[in-house]
Nucleic acid binder design. Structure first.
Length: 265
DNA sequence: CTCAGTGTTCAGTG
DNA sequence: TCACTGAACACTGA
């Protein structure tokens, strides 16, 4: 379930679990796609014996800052996930792609059943593809309202498509985009160039508050405010928000979009 | 059996 | 080149 809140929450958990520790064993399960063409040996060599200093994140990518190069960069795709445990997973399901064992007996498991996730090996992650294509991070590097407005106010694509464009601001995914537009009262298919100055300000504020709050909640849905569209967006056909207004589902920016026409104009 | 999906990239069009 | 759209990718669950 990886959008920014999940990825940042994973980053914090992983950093807490393995910071300053050294990798003592590496188990790589062959997968040409997830490992982006790298051989098992290349992957193994990169991890083996390395000490992890920090876990960093930009947009939906996280990577290990280690004492040796190259550094591993992870993207969870649609279904990737991590698990930190004290023992080797007993049943090796097909979805397990990588298991790292650390010198204190901590294990980190990377799974990805649908194989949209990726593990890259890069010498300088932020300056190499695909990270070099990312715009500023929505959490740590969000542009000011004015900068944000300048970035997109001349564009004619639907505002939602631009929110999802990782090269403008990185980290916003499908449900976060919908949530932000709902709370801003802006219809997802409005061309960005149509938005007023006040709407850009509102949008910018909501991008910031939704991202921060979701991370603060540790990506735990149940802790998100009751008023959020999030809780109702996948509720069947006749779904509505707490106030009774109907949720409409349509395709915007190539993605299924949930929105409330009575509230978003 | 069919289809959409919490994401990204690339080909094709204007 | 740029801005934008839509398909492809892999696999599962509804």
């Amino acid at each position: 379930m990886p959008e920014l809140p999940e990825v940042e929450t994973y980053r914090r958990q992983i950093e807490k679990a393995i910071k300053k520790k050294t990798i003592s064993h590496v188990h790589v399960y062959p997968d040409k796609i997830v490992f982006a063409g790298k051989s098992q040996k290349e992957i193994k060599d990169a991890f083996m014996g390395a000490t992890v200093h920090r876990i960093l994140r930009k947009g939906k990518y996280i990577w290990f800052e280690m004492d040796t190069h190259p550094w591993p960069v992870f993207h969870l795709g649609m279904t990737g996930n991590y698990e930190i445990t004290g023992e080797m997973p007993k049943t090796k399901t097909k979805s397990v792609k990588l298991v790292l064992e650390f010198d204190d007996g901590t294990f980190m498991i990377f799974r990805d059943p649908r194989r949209f996730g990726r593990i890259f090996l890069l010498d300088d992650p932020v300056n190499e593809r695909p990270l070099s294509h990312l715009g500023p991070d929505v959490l740590n590097e969000l542009p000011t309202t004015n900068q944000f407005t300048e970035l997109i106010s001349h564009r004619h694509a639907p505002i939602k498509a631009l929110l999802l464009d990782q090269s403008i601001v990185s980290g916003i995914g499908n449900w976060v985009a919908d949530e932000v537009l709902f709370q801003s009262g802006i219809a997802p298919d409005r061309p960005a160039s149509d938005l007023s100055k006040a709407e850009f300000k509102k949008l910018h504020d909501k991008i910031s508050s939704v991202a921060k709050l979701a991370v603060k909640a540790g990506a735990d849905d149940e802790k998100y405010p009751k008023s959020w569209l999030f809780h109702h967006r996948w509720g069947k056909k006749k779904a509505s928000i707490s106030t009774g207004q109907k949720i409409k589902h349509s395709t915007v920016g190539g993605r299924t979009t949930a929105w409330v026409p009575d509230v978003q104009h």
